[in-house]
Design a binder for these strands. Structure first.
Length: 510
DNA sequence: AAAAAAT
């Protein structure tokens, strides 16, 4: 960083906005931070260097905010939200206070100069509500044009996010639209230009709308990438995402970019830092990201048919009453194979994968979310973001592997899959005030109240079973354990009901 | 070869 000795830096500071590629901005100038309405409490980030929050409770999250100070929001009132949006939060969402990641990230999203944000947070800790609230709050209700755009890796996730937006924004009158294929789409040229203020969708449809000039970008204020690491990964949607960012840039919009995910591996992290330059950051330490809320097990199976027996006799028979189950498989093909085997044996399961028709996918998701079906077989279509609080059991029928090197585990996908379980109790991630007392020389003094933040560690359990059947699986599982620095217990015998019961009991499910 | 989606 060259120390900005030049006076021209003042100008550069307010204009600097370049995710494209070139435009190197050395000037980390001291643009006068807009004065905060007093919010008190934890100061987030300190001038110049990235800093860990002082409050020991918050040491698991690291933020870097450059030289713009932010103050964490203790209440939603601290965030200057519209009364209509507040009503949505309290009445519809039943929120009382911001969750930890909301408290930290929302001021960064909502405070001028609206710096870009890269935010990592645990599965189930309320990422969606964060960026949905961010979008709703940055939209000018009087301006009837697209102002917030959210890009998601699957249409299921886009639809789910849209549902959250509709609920939270119920009283705001803010209009929205899902940019996903419906199966019965009009030819694009027959569509009217999009007037909705918030658009949430998948890359292909969004690209299509943009190139057909049906989705204007000029008034965009905020661009959100959900599951951002995947959206910017080489084998993910990198090209599409960059393309859309370039289009926005070219339109002349002053648009904030916000990236959310539970995972950012080093490759993606490096790439992000090249693409999103002048940014705030919020990261969770690797060791704190571990999947404590969900008990993980491995089950050695002598052969493929034993895997099916485990599903049938243990997971389905024992697990039925424990809530819902998602069984992850590697490919569309194995999804339908497993489905057939189980159906033949008279078990009721449903399956979702990308080759199904859109309306069937919607129906299967809806049935599962409505609790009409108990067991869902899925490809990694649902590995990320899918939120269904009744899922207590996740089974990796096939371990997640890197598609370009099948002997390597995909630890990010593993974390996301396992994160589908044990979400119950995390939906309301709230804080409550507790008194703090100190004993000194035999007498007791009140220190005052602090905010205790209730987290997913307090949530009801959940369990994940990894089915392992050869040396390769073994090696992969070992690598996963090493990656997360945590050994995964083994269910002693794949044939023993008692062993499974013990495991489920340990996970708090029996 | 999972996934999105368009050619």
């Amino acid at each position: 960083m060259a120390d900005a000795a030049t006076d021209s830096s003042t100008k550069a500071a307010t204009v600097s906005k370049s995710w494209g590629d070139i435009a190197e901005e050395a000037a980390e100038s001291s643009s006068s931070p807009t004065p905060e309405p007093e919010m008190s409490a934890l100061a987030i980030g300190e001038p110049k260097e990235p800093k860990t929050l002082e409050d020991p409770d918050d040491s698991s999250i690291e933020t870097a905010t450059g030289d713009t100070p932010y103050t964490s929001a203790k209440t939603f009132e601290d965030l200057n939200l519209s009364p209509e949006l507040l009503k949505g939060l309290y009445v519809e969402m039943k929120f009382e206070r911001p969750s930890k990641i909301q408290a930290i990230s929302l001021p960064m999203i909502l405070t001028p100069p609206y710096k870009d944000l890269v935010a990592q947070a645990h599965n189930g800790s309320g990422k969606t509500t964060c960026f949905v609230l961010g979008m709703l709050s940055r939209v000018d209700p009087a301006l009837k044009a697209p102002q917030a755009l959210c890009i998601c890796p699957t249409r299921e996730l886009a639809i789910q996010n849209m549902e959250v937006l509709l609920k939270m924004g119920k009283y705001t009158g803010i209009t929205s639209e899902a940019a996903v294929p419906t199966g019965t789409d009009l030819p694009i040229y027959k569509r009217m230009p999009i007037m909705s203020q918030v658009v949430i969708g998948t890359p292909g449809t969004i690209k299509k709308w943009i190139s057909a000039k049906k989705l204007g970008l000029r008034d965009l204020k905020i661009l959100v990438f959900d599951e951002a690491d995947h959206m910017l990964a080489e084998d993910g949607f990198k090209d599409d995402s960059l393309r859309i960012m370039k289009d926005i840039e070219r339109s002349g919009a002053r648009c904030q970019v916000v990236l959310f995910s539970a995972t950012f591996d080093d490759t993606v992290k490096n790439f992000v830092s090249r693409v999103v330059k002048d940014r705030n950051e919020m990261f969770v330490k690797k060791e704190d990201l571990s999947l404590d809320a969900v008990k993980q097990y491995k089950v050695r199976c002598p052969d493929e048919s034993a895997k099916i027996s485990v599903i049938k006799d243990k997971i389905l028979d024992l697990g039925q009453k424990l809530g819902q189950t998602i069984i992850f498989v590697r490919s569309r093909h194995s999804a339908s194979m497993l489905h057939k085997s189980l159906a033949q044996l008279g078990y009721e399961v449903t399956t979702i994968q990308g080759a199904l028709r859109q309306e069937d996918r919607d129906k299967i998701v809806k049935e599962f979310k409505d609790g009409l079906t108990q067991v869902l077989i899925s490809t990694d279509l649902l590995a990320r973001g899918f939120d269904q609080s009744q899922v207590n059991l996740v089974v990796n029928y096939d371990l997640p592997v890197k598609h370009d090197s099948p002997n390597e585990p995909d630890c990010e996908v593993y974390l996301h899959r396992v994160g589908r379980a044990g979400r119950f109790g995390r939906k309301v991630v709230n804080g409550r005030r507790i008194g703090v007392w100190i004993y000194y020389k035999g007498s007791c003094h009140a220190l005052g109240n602090i905010l205790e933040l209730l987290f997913e560690k307090h949530s009801a359990g959940g369990a994940a079973f990894n089915l392992i059947y050869d040396d390769r699986d073994d090696a992969i599982m070992q690598k996963i354990e090493r990656h997360f620095g945590k050994s995964v217990a083994e269910v002693p015998s794949w044939e023993s009901d008692h062993d499974f019961e013990a495991a489920l009991k340990e996970a708090g499910l029996l």
